[in-house]
């Protein structure tokens, strides 16, 4: 059983093979960690799957259906959502509106020009509930640009989550925050994701975090998949230990 599978997926930038003939699969319900040193191609792989880039070669299948040619919007409707490594929010809008807009868009309500957004109780309730789940309820009326880095990372995830995806890609949800803040963020993220039965792929550098939270680990190196296994298998995999874990720079 696979939820998502890529076949021979490739993307080059000039002479650089950022993603090189990758077969990557995600099983329903799992919490998968994608690891690899900087420049391994993790973000590019997510960019390809989420539709930001078109692949040079290869196919992407979601539940057996070919989505390679689908637009970003179609993929969202299919159930693929993502967060961003460098926080990507609507900075001048309120924290609440960041989430509410996403709910409106998901419900195709952004097509209505002549209705007050704030009067939509169903959307307001859902947005408030999502902010509460992510511990951001007290920040609802602040502008997103005014949040702390840790809160911004959480909001970035919350916005992706508000799409109610079936497959959620989280690109380094704890990058750029202090070590102390990492565990709380991951706790919130995993509890929300698991409680809703969402399949998640998390890109993460901190191996403690990776081993604590994931069911399965895929390691990339120079655009290719180096290893794929349970946390225990990866821990024992000398190749991974030598090429990756030893070299991972502290964030």
């Amino acid at each position: 059983m696979t939820l998502l599978a890529t076949r021979g997926l490739s993307k080059t930038f000039g002479a650089l093979r950022a993603v090189d003939n990758v077969d990557f699969t995600v099983r329903p319900g799992e919490f998968l960690a994608l690891i690899g040193s900087n420049g391994a191609g993790k973000t590019t792989l997510v960019n390809l799957i989420s539709g930001l880039f078109r692949p040079d070669a290869g196919r992407i299948e979601f539940e057996g259906r070919d989505v390679t040619q689908q637009s970003v919007n179609e993929r969202i409707r299919t159930g693929i959502a993502r967060s961003f490594q460098l926080v990507n929010l609507f900075d001048q809008m309120s924290v609440f509106d960041n989430v509410a807009l996403t709910v409106f868009a998901r419900e195709r309500k952004t097509r209505s020009l002549f209705a007050l957004a704030d009067r939509d109780a169903a959307v307001a309730d859902e947005a408030a509930a999502i902010l509460a789940q992510f511990g951001l309820a007290t920040r609802a009326r602040m502008v997103a640009g005014g949040l702390s880095q840790g809160e911004r990372k959480l909001l970035d995830v919350a916005v992706a989550y508000a799409l109610r995806p079936r497959l959620l890609f989280l690109d380094e949800p704890t990058s750029g925050v202090s070590t102390r803040e990492k565990a709380p963020i991951m706790d919130v993220v995993t509890s929300v994701v698991r409680s809703q039965g969402i399949t998640a792929v998390v890109i993460e550098h901190d191996m403690d975090v990776v081993f604590t939270y994931s069911d399965r680990i895929v390691a990339m190196h120079q655009g290719a998949i180096l290893a794929d296994g349970t946390p225990d298998e990866i821990r024992r995999n000398d190749q991974v230990t030598s090429t990756l874990i030893g070299t991972v720079a502290p964030a």
């Binding site: 001048q92 807009l101 309500k109």
Partner: peptide, 10 residues
């Protein structure tokens, strides 16, 4: 102030 307006601001 409509959902459409929010989308424009986004």
């Amino acid at each position: 102030h409509s959902p459409f307006g929010k989308a424009l601001q986004a």
